[in-house]
Amino acid sequence: MTRMKTIKPLVLLCCFLINSALADEAAMLLKSSMADKNFVTLERVERDALQSFCSKPRSEEGDIETANALRESARAAVPMPTEDDFLGDWQRGEAVANNGRGLQYSDNPEQPNGGNCYACHQLDPDEVAYGTLGPSLTGYGARGQSLSMLEYTWIKLWNTHAYNVCSHMPRFGAAGILSEQQLKDVMAYLLDPRSPVNSGLSP
């Protein structure tokens, strides 16, 4: 029985080392299998700590301490607007939500990036072309505009891993995909009562 208890961690450690060697091999393999294209270079194959941690196949589990540390460092790095400065223009936010371009080697790097929210989320109930990878955000404004709600939404958009490590959503602020102004416009698209996202809510 005691022997079993010592063996199990050893087996786990052994599996971890094999898997991490395999992951390193995969990273090298990918780099040697790709080529720079337009403004997109092989630097993008390099992963940060969060990406490495979140690249595990479903059969492998990450450890909870690392997950907590990643979550906390993500949260600590979020710059917070002042209370009256969270919400931009919902109409500009709508354009950001609809725009799926940006950062692909086929895109024009001179144009602003989109947020591509509709790829994964339902928002305006009249827009039928929405994806289902993320939850529906239709009627999001019903949650109100308390400071905690503003902060929660801002952090979620800036770096989703501050709440849910290994969420599929991009780090729109932390990764520099969207500007602070674009993020404020998306905030308004989600929370402004005049936004079509909230058209189904009674005034």
Binding site: R44, C54, R171, A175
Partner: peptide, 17 residues
């Protein structure tokens, strides 16, 4: 096995795999 690792490989500005 490498294909499986690559399938879950998250990288780039959007963290996609």
């Amino acid at each position: 096995e490498l294909g499986e690792q690559l399938f879950y490989f998250r990288a780039g500005p959007h963290d996609f795999s």
